[in-house]
Design a binder for these strands. Structure first.
Lengths: 197, 197
DNA sequence: GACAAGGTTTGAACCGTACTCAAAGTTTGA
DNA sequence: TCAAACTTTGAGTACGGTTCAAACCTTGTC
């Protein structure tokens, strides 16, 4: 009995899951987040809805997994891209990568969804926390190159500004008049410059 | 034709709507946000689901209206309560009122919901923006009592810290281990003290 | 005081969609 | 080669939001 369960988990082919998650990203972009049905994902993955559910168990889990993949992907790309830039450009670019590109930004819509219906398993929460920390660490490293802040102060600066960007993103997602992606970017950068000057 | 529409709107009894919204708050607390059905609200309001929908049009609108009411209510209470306190105590209390009390905080779950499924009518967005501004204005006023910051600087301080609190609230709602309501409060207050010192 | 017009309320039906299940198909390993 | 476990699907279920038409009330008018 227990054997069955364990082997099931081990044998879940990651390629299959990744395939579905890519289909999910595509589906969200094409049909929009609010109208997204499991069928839209299944169609684009070339399989039945039952099969998608067989791998993920529930619609919510598909979305959470999509966020995790999307975030992991960005985590990699970010490291590679920022390494090539000088500190000031890296700071600017990091902010750009972090913030939503607009009201319909897929990654941020996923975040909003997950915050509205949070997962209850500890493991997922720790992975999400891991992404937070990764962003903060990257930002802290850049800040240390730009100022004479100590490790602790840089870390504090980074965490505060990540959370600030989270808050600003809420405005962007809501579509508050005047509070668009550009406004958010300018606001964060102003706050950063203010402290680093 | 147009007459019908207009009179319909005018005649919507506000007491009836308010009654439903209070029922909604109660229902959320009792059955939990994720399992909330329109029927749960209707039951507690002592009417049929059709009747609730007759007044609000859709489930989403009920939730948005509940948030608006909840926020308007807090807006009033806040003004009355903070006026009685000295500046330092008022700052502390404002932060307490702003932040979620915990993972299940009803007002914040409503915010999360509305950000995940934003309304598309301009009017609602402006009302939400109004609440943002109201919080910021209140915070700015307190800050000016505590420091020699000018009007502009105080306003900037206030907006940044409101958004910071929004971001921290996300962590609390998610239930990231270690990031509870108390942690959020301490983090904001530390940031505020840091700048005001 | 009766009646017309519009406003309110509801129960019953509709519809869409997440999820379940059993059966058929496929792989793996002994 | 066969059986056991894994995969895949179509059909079916459950459930919740939304619609609709009909009954009920309220109000103002002759």
């Amino acid at each position: 009995m227990r054997m069955v369960r364990e082997s099931k988990i081990t044998l879940e082919r990651p390629d299959m899951r990744a395939h579905v998650l890519k289909a999910a990203l595509l589906a969200i972009e094409e049909v929009g987040f609010t109208q997204l049905r499991v069928k839209d994902i299944a169609d684009r993955a070339g399989m039945s809805t039952s099969h998608v559910l067989y791998y993920f168990g529930s619609r919510d889990r598909i979305l959470i997994s999509t966020l995790l993949m999307s975030e992991a992907d960005l985590d990699e790309r970010r490291g590679a891209e920022l390494a090539r830039l000088d500190a000031r450009a890296a700071l600017d670019r990091l902010v750009e990568l972090y913030l939503p590109r607009g009201r319909q930004d897929v990654r941020w819509r996923l975040w909003a969804q997950v915050i509205a219906r949070p997962p209850d398993d500890e493991e997922t929460l720790l992975r999400l926390d891991g992404f937070f920390r990764s962003w903060a660490a990257e930002l802290a490293a850049i800040v240390r190159r730009l100022s004479d802040l100590g490790a602790e102060a840089a870390e504090d600066f980074a965490v505060r500004h990540c959370r600030l960007m989270d808050g600003l993103s809420g405005d962007v997602l809501l579509g508050i008049p005047g509070h668009d992606a550009l406004w958010a970017k300018e606001t964060v950068l102003a706050s950063m410059r203010r402290e680093l000057a």
